[in-house]
Amino acid sequence: MPTLSLKSILAFGALAGASAVANIQSRQDSLQQYRTQIKELNKYIADGIKCYTEFVPQVKASNPPKRTVLKSIEKCNILYDNGAIKLRDAHRTAQARNFQSDKLHEMGLANVLDARLEHQGEYTRKLQEALQELHDRSKEAVDAFDAGTNSTIRVALELKKVAEEQRIDVSKAKIERKSSADGGPLIEVAGVLVAGVAVFGAITYGPFIEATTAAAEGIEALDTAIETATSHVSATQNAVTTDLNSVTIGQLNQARQALEEVSIHVEAAHDNVDALHAVLAEVPEAEADEANVVVHVKAAELNTAIGQYNNLRAALMQIRQTVVQSITPITDI
């Protein structure tokens, strides 16, 4: 029978020892990674609870609520989503074959794979309670957001009733800034029907021309921001469709940031159209009909862009729900 030399035996023992050391190091690395993930998860949960809790009284402080206040819920949603993804990451780490779940209690860490509601250990119970509180506070905040948004819409619709009752067709409107015969600026209006009457003509009143230019530039910038946001949201939707588990915090945040940029341009364009409307009263009577048409055209363009923005927001909300619901929670909340 062949025998191993002393050199072979020693070499075999060295390899076995190196393998054991590597396995121990791998297990320690997994525990350290898990500790970091739980630490980040706890931070997102605590910050999210605080954010949602502070949001509710801010919304109820005025009726309708300020638009900036309603928008601030997005900061809370980011914390919620980031926490959900960190919980997913901790799940993946804990499900690894060499993960030492028996070490978690002595390290003061919750076990995210333990969905029991009794006898689950104090650290796991505390995490479950924190997740439940985050869920409850987020629901209260969403209810307040929905109520505040509905109030804002109802007030806006009531204020616009008179304008909407006017029969103005701006679907083929054409508004161009040109130079008059003497070199001065003017705005030409054509392609608009008011109560079945074709309105066309020119506006030479300087302040109104400048306000129209600002409104047009603001809406153009808004349209560009919407195109960028559409690209980001579509890319995230594709990622959700092809490989849901590959969706990252970075992807969600890119889509959010693009929508936040749109929101900024919506505010600016809205202010510009409001300013245009304010100048309307100063326009000479001879140019008042054409000026009224310009205001309606810009308001219609703004409303179209806002509709696109709202659709993108709804799409991102659906993406959020799909991602969050796909992540197995520590307990069914």
Rank of each mutant, 00 (worst) to 15 (best):
M1T: 10
K7W: 13
L10S: 08
A14C: 10
A16D: 07
G17T: 09
G17S: 14
V21A: 12
V21Y: 12
A22E: 05
A22V: 00
Q25T: 12
S26R: 12
R27Q: 12
Q33R: 12
D47K: 08
K50S: 11
T53P: 09
T53Q: 04
F55K: 01
V56N: 05
K66C: 03
T68N: 09
K71H: 09
I73G: 14
K86Q: 09
A90F: 01
T93N: 15
Q100F: 12
H105W: 01
E106F: 13
A110T: 04
R116A: 04
R116C: 03
E118T: 07
Q120Y: 13
Q120C: 15
Q120L: 13
Q120I: 07
E122Y: 01
Q132P: 06
R137D: 03
R137E: 04
S138R: 06
K139R: 09
K139H: 11
A141T: 02
A141P: 03
V142P: 00
V142R: 08
A144L: 10
A147K: 04
G148N: 05
I153F: 05
K161I: 02
E164M: 01
D169S: 00
V170H: 02
S171C: 01
K174H: 02
R177H: 13
A181P: 04
G183I: 05
G184R: 15
E188N: 13
A190T: 03
A195S: 08
A198W: 12
V199T: 03
F200M: 08
P207A: 13
F208Y: 02
F208A: 02
I209R: 05
A211R: 07
A211H: 06
T212W: 02
A214Q: 13
E217K: 15
E217W: 15
L222N: 11
T224F: 10
I226F: 11
I226C: 09
S231Q: 08
V233G: 08
V233C: 08
S234I: 00
A235C: 00
Q237F: 01
A239S: 15
V240S: 09
V240K: 06
D243S: 11
N245M: 10
L252P: 00
N253R: 10
S263T: 07
D274Y: 04
A275T: 00
H277A: 10
V279G: 07
L280Q: 04
V283Q: 05
A288H: 06
V294Q: 14
H296E: 09
H296S: 08
A300R: 07
A300D: 12
N303G: 06
N303Q: 02
A305H: 05
A315Q: 15
L316Q: 14
Q318C: 04
R320D: 02
Q321Y: 07
Q321S: 13
I330A: 02
I330R: 03
T331Q: 12
T331H: 12
